[in-house]
Nucleic acid binder design. Structure first.
Lengths: 153, 153
DNA sequence: CCGTATCGTAATTTATGAAGTTACATGAGA
DNA sequence: TCTCATGTAACTTCATAAATTACGATACGG
């Protein structure tokens, strides 16, 4: 089953924007993600609605962060994307009069809901600042200072 | 994203077989699932390989359980199906030289792995016997004795 | 004001994999 | 031998994220 990569892409973009410190165009972000500017704009739309980023048209325009990295978690980003479907498995049908299926559905649904709650709790604990710090840690370990080229901006 | 319903379907079929107490044809099982006999055979293939069910061709043939309901968990069934992809979300790319993406990927992957472990633990605790008991509880609550028609066999 | 850079978005195409379907071979009982 | 079943390959359908195309709107620089 094909995967939904929007969360991964959005986080990647947000961290790149944090490094840039100035407006970054969809074009440049798309290059970092190896994708298309339209895909970037689509993904960023939800983040803009939640006030996490701003976009400016025209010369010198592009995307800038408008939030504090400490205050935004992976859960916030996930929800800004519209809380995409999390699981690739699910119940065969949800309105059933078959009691066997009812028993099966409930047990699967409860287990999935539990796993989802756990995942959201984890996502809620990870801030963009933590991700950024992790990135800088890796950068330091690998040696050498960051250049704009190194982070593809 | 479209869902994978094989686990739900397999469990449904197994419980119906447990009620029947005699070989049930793919045709009959497909009717209970409102699907196609070929789909049933495909799903059941993995269960047969693990020895949870047997199939017999020809007159009076069909599928029968060959395991004790107490000894088989949802996890066993899930794994017999080939451990289908669990999450609909994932990392954009797994081989990256971008440290930003690396940091993002690891944090998402760890959270997903944690949720998956939790889900598998839950699945490992639920036996087919428990599902069957739950079904019979619902049947009793709804009143009236079970007939073969009621459970679509 | 004009030209260009940039976002906004609708419409279309592509890609993927489960589900559904068709077709036919194989095997087992009556 | 005939019919009932499974076994399986091949093909079609379906849903949806991603990718692409196209065009409109806006903002800055000259």
């Amino acid at each position: 089953m094909r995967q939904d990569n929007r969360l991964s892409g959005a986080l990647h973009v947000l961290l790149h924007m944090a490094e840039a410190g100035r407006p970054v165009t969809s074009e440049a972000l798309a290059r970092a993600l190896d994708t298309n500017p339209v895909v970037v704009r689509r993904v960023m739309g939800g983040l803009r609605e939640q006030g996490y980023v701003r976009s400016v048209k025209g010369h010198g325009g592009g995307w800038t962060l408008s939030c504090e990295l400490e205050r935004v978690t992976l859960k916030d980003v996930y929800e800004a994307l519209g809380s995409p479907q999390l699981f690739a498995i699910g119940n065969r049908s949800d309105n059933t009069q078959c009691l066997v299926e009812e028993a099966v559905n409930i047990s699967i649904s409860e287990a999935l809901a539990d796993a989802e709650a756990r995942l959201m709790a984890r996502f809620g604990e990870i801030t963009l600042a933590a991700l950024s710090a992790d990135f800088h840690r890796r950068l330091a370990e690998r040696g050498g200072p960051a250049t704009l080229e190194e982070i593809h901006i």
